[in-house]
Measured scan of single mutants.
Amino acid sequence: QLWTVEEQKKLEQLLIKYPPEEVESRRWQKIADELGNRTAKQVASRVQKYFIKLTKAGIPVPGR
């Protein structure tokens, strides 16, 4: 299922709330739990694509 604008905005906020961890899967699980309707795997996939998009555009990656 496609990500809504609201989900993307919340994801961006949660990336700041939950900074990078030694075991990133824990971070994705915390974010997924707060989103409520996404799995950690879906979050990880979305974040990877989002970070690539930001990097290509020369925009700083949130939480890094």
Rank of each mutant, 00 (worst) to 15 (best):
W3G: 03
T4A: 03
V5A: 10
V5F: 10
Q8V: 10
Q8T: 09
Q8C: 03
Q8P: 01
Q8D: 14
Q8W: 03
Q8N: 12
Q8K: 06
Q8G: 06
Q8M: 15
K9P: 00
K9F: 06
K9Q: 13
K10P: 00
K10E: 07
K10H: 13
K10G: 03
K10D: 04
K10C: 05
K10R: 12
L11P: 00
L11M: 05
L11K: 01
L11W: 00
L11E: 00
L11V: 03
L11Q: 00
L11T: 01
E12G: 07
E12M: 04
E12P: 02
E12I: 06
E12V: 05
Q13Y: 08
Q13C: 04
Q13D: 11
Q13M: 14
Q13H: 06
Q13E: 15
Q13T: 12
L14Y: 03
L14G: 01
L14D: 00
L14Q: 02
L14A: 07
L14F: 03
L15F: 03
L15D: 01
I16C: 05
I16K: 13
I16T: 11
I16R: 10
I16P: 01
I16D: 13
K17Q: 08
K17Y: 04
K17G: 01
K17A: 08
K17R: 07
K17V: 06
K17I: 04
K17E: 07
K17W: 03
Y18I: 05
Y18A: 01
Y18P: 00
Y18W: 03
Y18E: 01
Y18R: 01
P19R: 06
P19G: 13
P19L: 08
P19I: 03
P19K: 07
P19D: 04
P19Y: 03
P20E: 15
P20T: 12
P20F: 06
P20Y: 09
P20C: 06
E21Y: 02
E21I: 05
E21A: 03
E21R: 02
E21P: 02
E21K: 02
E21S: 06
E21C: 06
E22R: 08
E22C: 07
E22Y: 04
E22L: 09
E22K: 11
E22D: 14
V23S: 11
V23G: 07
V23T: 14
V23L: 09
V23A: 08
V23W: 05
E24H: 04
E24S: 08
E24V: 07
E24A: 08
E24M: 11
E24F: 04
E24Q: 09
S25A: 13
S25D: 12
S25R: 09
S25H: 10
S25T: 11
R26G: 12
R27M: 03
R27F: 02
R27W: 02
R27N: 02
R27I: 00
R27G: 02
W28E: 02
W28H: 05
W28F: 09
W28M: 12
W28T: 00
W28D: 00
Q29N: 09
Q29E: 14
Q29H: 05
Q29V: 10
Q29C: 08
Q29Y: 04
Q29F: 04
Q29K: 06
K30H: 03
K30R: 10
K30W: 02
K30M: 05
K30E: 02
K30N: 05
K30Y: 03
K30T: 03
I31M: 05
I31Y: 01
I31E: 01
I31V: 07
I31G: 02
I31N: 00
I31K: 00
I31T: 00
A32K: 01
A32I: 01
A32S: 08
A32L: 01
A32T: 00
D33H: 14
D33P: 01
D33Y: 07
E34P: 00
E34I: 04
E34D: 05
E34T: 04
E34Y: 04
E34S: 07
E34F: 04
E34L: 05
L35A: 00
L35S: 00
L35R: 01
L35T: 00
L35C: 03
L35D: 00
L35Y: 03
L35K: 01
L35W: 01
L35G: 02
G36P: 10
G36C: 06
G36K: 07
G36E: 10
G36L: 05
G36F: 06
G36A: 09
G36I: 07
N37Y: 05
N37L: 05
N37D: 08
N37V: 06
N37H: 11
R38P: 02
R38S: 04
R38V: 13
R38I: 11
R38W: 06
R38C: 08
R38Y: 10
R38N: 01
T39C: 04
T39R: 01
T39F: 01
T39S: 11
T39P: 03
T39Y: 01
T39I: 02
A40W: 13
A40L: 04
A40Y: 05
A40M: 09
A40P: 13
K41G: 12
K41V: 10
K41W: 10
K41Y: 06
Q42F: 03
Q42C: 05
V43A: 00
V43Q: 00
V43E: 00
V43K: 00
V43Y: 00
V43H: 00
V43L: 02
V43M: 02
A44R: 10
A44T: 03
S45F: 05
S45T: 06
R46S: 08
R46Q: 12
R46W: 10
R46A: 15
R46F: 13
R46E: 12
R46H: 13
R46G: 11
R46N: 09
V47L: 04
V47H: 03
V47A: 14
V47K: 00
V47W: 03
V47C: 12
V47P: 00
V47Q: 02
V47S: 07
Q48A: 12
Q48L: 05
Q48R: 11
Q48V: 05
Q48H: 13
Q48G: 09
K49E: 15
K49Y: 05
K49P: 07
K49R: 09
K49D: 13
Y50T: 15
Y50I: 11
Y50S: 14
Y50W: 10
Y50E: 15
Y50R: 06
F51V: 10
F51S: 13
F51I: 10
F51T: 13
F51K: 13
I52S: 15
I52G: 15
I52N: 14
I52T: 15
I52E: 15
K53E: 13
K53F: 05
K53A: 09
K53S: 13
K53L: 04
K53N: 11
K53W: 05
L54C: 14
L54E: 15
L54K: 15
L54V: 11
L54G: 15
L54Q: 15
L54S: 15
L54R: 14
L54D: 15
T55V: 08
T55P: 15
T55C: 07
K56T: 09
K56G: 09
K56A: 11
K56E: 08
K56P: 12
K56D: 14
K56S: 11
K56N: 05
A57C: 06
A57E: 13
A57H: 10
A57D: 12
A57T: 10
A57K: 13
G58K: 09
G58Y: 03
G58N: 08
G58L: 10
G58P: 10
G58S: 12
G58E: 12
G58W: 03
G58A: 11
I59A: 14
I59R: 12
I59Y: 08
I59P: 14
I59F: 13
I59V: 14
I59L: 13
I59D: 15
P60H: 09
P60Y: 04
P60L: 07
P60R: 07
V61Q: 15
V61S: 13
V61P: 14
V61E: 13
V61W: 06
V61R: 11
V61H: 07
P62W: 06
P62S: 13
P62D: 15
P62Y: 10
P62C: 11
P62A: 11
P62E: 10
P62T: 09
P62G: 11
P62N: 14
P62I: 06
G63Q: 04
G63A: 05
R64C: 08
R64H: 11
R64D: 15
R64N: 13
R64G: 14
R64W: 11
